[in-house]
Amino acid sequence: MTDLRSSAPPPLDDSDHVRGPTEAPLLLLYGDFACPSCALADRRLRRLPLRYAFRHFALRSKRPRALALACASEAAARQGAFWPMHDALFDDQGHQDDPHLWRRAQALGLDLERFEADRRAEVTAARVARDVTSGLRAGVALTPTLFVGGERHAGPPTPELLEALAAGIARAGRGEEPARADSM
């Protein structure tokens, strides 16, 4: 049986998807590529110079394409293209079917045959499930859920949170933020 009791989000490791300057404040987002509120959150966050980590919260019953899209992003990751696929999925949520995924994979220059095999592989499903489990244990109950400085924020970032993030980025830019590990 999986342990699903409460536990803070595990610290980032090498298999996590992280981008942005290392000295910037860290924001962890549990999201679903089929979720419109996640696309909105991504739109608001992408222009900020944050250190940004993405974990999957794709539920079987929630949206029919959630799992397929999560696995597609992981298959792209195996060819070093997680973030381009992440952006391509959020930028055009109206196109989520398999032919649309193939088109994206081709546009990103991926090996299509390998992409197809990888997105259906058990190891890919297990990678997605690992994120979902850590999200469940951290109390994630809707998407997107953001973690900033150990605090959980459910829903797309509010103007107040964006303001606090911008202030944190400014402090980090002035070297006022202490160095910190990639922990939640």
């Binding site: 049986m1 999986t2 699903l4 539920l59 079987r60 019953s61 929630k62 979902v132 469940l136 994630v140 109950a141 809707l142 998407t143």
Partner: peptide
């Protein structure tokens, strides 16, 4: 909000039933 809540519990229903 209720929609999200039950979807999350459905995800772990097998685990709950196994307990």
């Amino acid at each position: 909000v209720c929609t999200d809540q039950l979807s999350v519990y459905q995800e772990v229903l097998d685990e709950l039933e196994s307990r």
